[in-house]
Write a protein that binds this DNA or RNA. Sequence first.
DNA 1: TAGATTGTTAATCGATTAACAATC
DNA 2: TAGATTGTTAATCGATTAACAATC
Lengths: 218, 218
Amino acid sequence: MQKVISTAVIKRLPRYYRYLGELRKKEVVRISSKELSERMNVTASQIRQDLNNFGGFGQQGYGYNVEYLYTEIGKILGLDQEHHVAIIGAGNLGQAIANYGDFARRGFDIRAIFDVKPELIGKEIGGVKIRSMSELKDYVTNQKPDIVALAVPKEHAMQVANDVVSWGVGAIWNFAPTELHLPKDVVVENVHLTESLMRLSYNIRAAKDKQKESETEQ
Amino acid sequence: MQKVISTAVIKRLPRYYRYLGELRKKEVVRISSKELSERMNVTASQIRQDLNNFGGFGQQGYGYNVEYLYTEIGKILGLDQEHHVAIIGAGNLGQAIANYGDFARRGFDIRAIFDVKPELIGKEIGGVKIRSMSELKDYVTNQKPDIVALAVPKEHAMQVANDVVSWGVGAIWNFAPTELHLPKDVVVENVHLTESLMRLSYNIRAAKDKQKESETEQ
DNA sequence: TAGATTGTTAATCGATTAACAATC
DNA sequence: TAGATTGTTAATCGATTAACAATC
């Protein structure tokens, strides 16, 4: 049976990937866990532990080959294959996702955008025409997108998610500020901007309190 | 000295807040940690532990008053005060943020948007006119926004962040896919969409592997 | 061969869960 | 008063860090 990797590890992988990508661009050939740990501000031990969940990518006395490790982490993250993405909701957020070139570069191919608003239908975003929601079932059934990015108002999110899942979609990138209750074999990744902003707000207050405290101390 | 709350706890607070908000809307008056835990799919113990980091909000034999707890968590998150937000970058992402009504409802008041593109300047987004970046220094210095939302290309993110921080900004909501190295008293909250998408990609592959495995078993 | 650095085991630390006395 | 449920201490679990033998 396959080992289950903790979410803590998974969360760190994209960051390793980003750093290795930068090193690679700078044509750095090799790097030790110690050196990488200093740049990334984590422990060398953690890097080695994390990587060894997936295999021994390094070499004693040498370290890690940047190009090789970059490629291997890419494979672990599934970036070695194309992902066919459909966006539902062509509001600002949907359009922002469609226009974000970084995704295409990483193999996420945005092939369709859907919206209910008649005035949006036919408009072109990032080279893709906005389609009517009435075409959605047909599209999903026949084109089988790997990922659906859900950028609809939260009132409709659950319904749309249920629909596309019933038509065969297995992965949802959810931007609606609500929880999707879906069968457990459906992969869901949430981007909850409001929660992010609230954490920022919390930390602003915490930082202020801390400052006040240090002022009192003097 | 003030107790430092772990990030694990802080991450959960907005979710509690959201659930309590829903209960409140449904006019539920009281709730026990057990009942809430079942709805939220966490342990009752965790809820009580989390809340007791901030004080005793409940009552033995009764549970928690929904309205009161909602308000208190709001205060903890700093949602009882207005936040003056300025967005830098009026591309799709900046516009999406500006148009997102949920933020205003939570006291995040978006008062200004900046961009370099001449064709965007003067255009109105969510009731706010886009200003030229040349006005930025003046605006930040005089209007002192609490939060700067950074929605500029990653190449410029670090520079702009440094600038606004040097002009007095203490909190940055960063959407650029890069790390901002700033003085430690500056609060930074990152929204790294590419990393989110990579985690989704990882989980798609993991789910596929799992499925394949269970098929082989039979 | 000597030096460097990994892969991996062991120790520590922190977060989650369980248990229960306090109390409404 | 009896029942319910909190607040909090203790036990468990998991993740991080440290240490070091293996090995390039």
